[in-house]
């Protein structure tokens, strides 16, 4: 579903954010992407969703290059950024309807899916209010719903649990498992190692732009806890 091949990104000024990253996410995977601040997680994620230009390597979504055909890639993926900055001058329902229009979701289907996910995240009563009146967590829920209503094959999330209350975080984890069971794939960054350990079928750890380990969660961590493994790898130069 997602193939990252020899991806490198150097920012203007010479800082190499990601160095020759190669990774594959298959349908059904919940893939955790772990690394400390500034390791290159967000740069990689932004490149996957077409929000970040890059000079070498390529990224394929369902076999289509994001470089050559970004539009076709964007049609089948959904992105949830680390900060839910959304149009504050729209109401929640106007924002969801806008996203549904852009992804050309059938009217009946969008109504059904919006209701389903808004109910699950307990946001339905707030959908008529301006996004400006929402708390951080409510905005995060709205972005998550907007990402789900067009049934993406690949869901890319950057720190999705930040700002969510425990119940919403649980709902999100359940939904993540559901959509992957239905053949979609999820690639997400997180600093919450407990969540990654319990939720992810596969993990990758990135340090200073380079992938230092990846694979099935159980095999990567072995008998160790993910936290111990992460600390060992990060501290070990």
């Amino acid at each position: 579903m997602l193939q990252i091949q020899n991806f490198s990104k150097t920012y203007k000024g010479g800082k190499k954010a990601v160095d020759n990253l190669t990774l594959e996410v298959k349908a059904g995977d919940i893939y955790g992407f772990i690394g400390h601040n500034g390791a290159g997680k967000t740069t990689t994620i932004r490149a996957i969703v077409g929000a970040q230009e890059f000079e070498s390597g390529d990224i394929f979504i369902n076999g289509i290059s994001i470089k050559d055909n970004p539009l076709e890639c964007k049609k089948i993926l959904a992105f949830i950024p680390d900060n839910p900055d959304i149009y504050e001058y729209l109401t929640g329902i106007q924002y969801l309807n806008f996203i549904a229009d852009i992804f050309m979701v059938d009217v009946k289907e969008r109504e059904t899916l919006i209701k389903e996910y808004a109910d699950r995240f307990e946001l339905t009563v707030n959908l008529g209010d301006l996004v400006a009146s929402y708390s951080h967590g409510m905005k995060q829920k709205l972005v998550i719903i907007s990402a789900l209503i067009h049934k993406p094959k690949l869901l890319i999330l950057d720190e999705p649990f930040v700002g969510l209350d425990p119940k919403a975080a649980h709902t999100l984890k359940t939904i993540m498992r559901e959509i992957c069971a239905n053949g979609s794939a999820i690639f997400f960054s997180t600093h919450v190692l407990d969540v990654a350990e319990k939720l992810c079928t596969k993990i990758a750890i990135i340090k200073a732009g380079k992938l230092i380990t990846y694979g099935e969660t159980n095999k990567v961590k072995g008998d160790n806890s993910l936290e111990n493994l992460f600390m060992e790898l990060i501290d070990n130069d």
């Binding site: 929640g92 549904a100 808004a118 339905t124 009563v125 008529g128």
Partner: peptide, 11 residues
Amino acid sequence: RSKSNYKMKAL
């Protein structure tokens, strides 16, 4: 202002 009384309507 927020009313928090939205009910799903036809879109």
